[in-house]
Design a protein around this nucleic acid. Structure first.
Lengths: 231, 231
DNA sequence: ACCTGAACACCGTTCAAGT
DNA sequence: ACCTGAACACCGTTCAAGT
């Protein structure tokens, strides 16, 4: 009789579930997200979630999508319309000319924003790896990058390859960084791996390395892409 | 009484468990590996595994390590001894000179072997993301790369950054490729993402893209690294 | 439509009991 | 030392029952 069964106003919504799940992931990690725990956090019972999502994985997919939705894509906006028809665009391979550096700059800004979005929620990154790239925000990213690159003069095949390459690098960098590297066990390793002294094992050092490696790789990637090739 | 409790010869060994778990991962995916299922596959009961591994994650760590152990490191062998003292090594940034291209070639061969090792066991790749880089084979890789790069004349900081960059790219590429990309639902997407037509949604197409993107990125990365910089 | 308790078929892991 | 059955505290998910 006081079985509160259906409230006059829904207690849950997809948005509220996703926000709560993201907070839980950020605070306690992926494995803290169980249907019962998440429901409790929302003041509700486990099965209630299934009125709003088909499975738990669908919830985490939505969380991952929300994180990717934070990636800035505004640097591609100049390209988003009439991209296909930009006949005047000179060969993208050349390093001079007014528009030549634009795509490099846009890619760099996108890559940094992408990485920052993942760094803001490190615990979801391993899950991002599992789920495929068919989530809306990821498709939106792929579409924006592809559009900008073709508008800059790259062929469709080249644009696809470059976009994928950038995605590989950013995702790998996020994983390599946030899925934690070395531990501070110190010289236990030093004996077996002569080049890796204890300096490599400090977490704060690791953080600087990750930042440095990302910038090094990003610069190299963009410089290498701008260089003429023979394929 | 016919409680076969302890056999005269152990039924299990770490090696047998790891091999069986890897086969199970390859055949049916990560989620098929439960302690009960794996034990059954080994002709044994679930709890028996705990005589050989502390947790299930330790088993999967060992599987991941076994996969990484397949990566070829022989291209770094010329550098593994006396690496630190290679005084004669000219500045690695220059593109000419006999030893200059060597490290690029070694990195390329390593990256391809690394990717191939992961491609051979795609279902474990998402797990590799979770576990940190403190596994023996990964440390061995890091050590070999670092040694070769410093021997080629790179500073310790640069060698660290380059090694991490390469790892980011290969790992990201493996994830991006094997954690499945687009699906073949076709023009459902075509409406929302104008640049991604149905050609992008075919799995075989995706496979060619992954291969092409990997080679494009690898070449760009190495070319960009060889280019002089100002830091 | 949306939340509930009860139930199902699982998990990973512990442990005393066997040999 | 190494395998066993039984048990514990969980899972994700289904479903009839409530409003």
């Amino acid at each position: 009789m006081w079985h509160m069964a259906r409230p006059r106003k829904p207690l849950l919504s997809r948005a509220r579930i996703v926000a709560c799940a993201l907070a839980l992931v950020d605070d306690e990690g992926l494995q803290a997200v169980t249907t019962r725990r998440l429901a409790a956090e929302l003041g509700v019972r486990g099965p209630s979630l299934y009125n709003h999502f088909r499975t738990k994985d669908d919830i985490l997919d939505a969380v991952a999508d929300a994180v990717c939705a934070d990636v800035d894509l505004s640097m591609f906006e100049p390209y988003t319309e009439g991209a296909e028809a930009a006949e005047g665009a000179e060969r993208a391979g050349s390093t001079d000319g007014p528009g030549a550096a634009d795509w490099q700059d846009a890619l760099a800004r996108w890559a940094r924003s992408y990485r920052a979005a993942l760094a803001a929620h490190p615990h979801i990154v391993p899950y991002l790896a599992r789920g495929p790239g068919r989530r809306p925000s990821q498709l939106r990213m792929a579409d924006a990058v592809f559009g900008a690159l073709t508008a800059a003069g790259w062929s469709r095949a080249q644009a696809t390859h470059i976009g994928a390459t950038m995605r590989y690098f950013v995702a790998g960098s996020a994983l390599g960084s946030f899925a934690r590297g070395f531990v501070d066990d110190a010289e236990l390793y030093a004996r077996d791996y002569p080049h890796l002294d204890e300096a490599h094992l400090l977490a704060e050092y690791q953080q600087r390395v990750d930042d440095g490696a990302f910038e090094t790789g990003l610069r190299a990637l963009l410089a290498g892409l701008a260089q003429p090739r023979d394929d």
